[in-house]
Design a protein around this nucleic acid. Sequence first.
DNA 1: GTCTATAATCGGATAGAC
DNA 2: GTCTATCCGATTATAGAC
Lengths: 214, 214
Amino acid sequence: MTGARSGRRAGDSGTREAIVTAARRRFAENGYDGATIRGIAADAGVDPALVLHFHGTKERLFAASLQLTVVPGELITSVLAAERRRLGEEFTGHLGEIVVRSVLTVWEKEDARASFVGMLRSAATNEQAARMLREFVTTTIMTALSQAVGPDAGEPDPATRRYRASLVASQVIGLAFTRYVLQLAPVTSASAAELVAAIGPTIQRYLTGDLSSG
Amino acid sequence: MTGARSGRRAGDSGTREAIVTAARRRFAENGYDGATIRGIAADAGVDPALVLHFHGTKERLFAASLQLTVVPGELITSVLAAERRRLGEEFTGHLGEIVVRSVLTVWEKEDARASFVGMLRSAATNEQAARMLREFVTTTIMTALSQAVGPDAGEPDPATRRYRASLVASQVIGLAFTRYVLQLAPVTSASAAELVAAIGPTIQRYLTGDLSSG
DNA sequence: GTCTATAATCGGATAGAC
DNA sequence: GTCTATCCGATTATAGAC
């Protein structure tokens, strides 16, 4: 009879989060098409109908499981900003290594890696997921690139600028695919430091080097 | 009553080949899991049951559609041998560009590209396909690399040799993924010559350069 | 909030007629 | 060689009881 609310609180008790976590893992392991509501529900220990009760549709659940992916975008930019302050003049020269170290650091966080691997696997067979990954890659890399090289230094022409960014994407995506999806022996077992030393200069050249000759 | 064979000839009239071609295209577009017997049959203009009548199972059909992929392996090795004769002393120095030009040339052939893209898309979500791609990549790149750098010159240590090969794989696979699967704008529209100039030096460094620093 | 039941499809594979 | 008919399993999604 009082004005106080009765019944269950709106703030749920973990199952919603458990569902999203299970979804992220399943999408990462099997891609969008391969992951199933039933499997996600089983992982989360809930009824399959409950998953859709919360998120409405598989697509929206996928989007929800990737919300975390927005963070790495900002994370990379903030890491770059910090490195820029730290290195000052030398910053531009070590940009390639910084980029590689940044992505490898982000990918050591299981949630972030799962999100990205999920996008990779999904984009391979699902056009909508491919669109999402394209957008994510371009915005992330392009903004990072702008903040990194700066509007002043580096490449002024926006066309070659996009070209440089896409070359970076080809190597970064290739690294993620061989390391986490294909699991090709030496790349998978290599340490972050080794990969930074090996691939950093490649990124450096794509960002600031001469692309018309060896 | 003669000893002559009667009935239809064993050499079939094109439908078998049509099925394999349709299969290759479907696997390339949708990956192993996404491609369907029914869809392949529709593309080939035959009954779905006929597809399995010929090939028994979906797995074997996939393998059959990839049989062509063996050729590019040999093709690359022969291209490398030819270039080696042509360039002589300078060969080793231009190895990176030669590798990139080779794969891009192979991928211009629709069948070969479809086979590789099919393996890529399939490997993203199917462990068995991933195993196949791993094997294909290692044998192809490793043998090509051996014949290229030669048993004498280059890297003597087999461990770092495998490491170098896997780095090459990460960039080559990344190129294929961004150009044909993800279809990221500038990489997709770039000419072979541009990509050779941009990516060749990367491969060169992975093959023969110093990997422990910039 | 949670679950049962079920609708509506779509998948690979098989048996067997012609 | 070709096709019809069908089995059996799995999928997303919805309706509705509790």
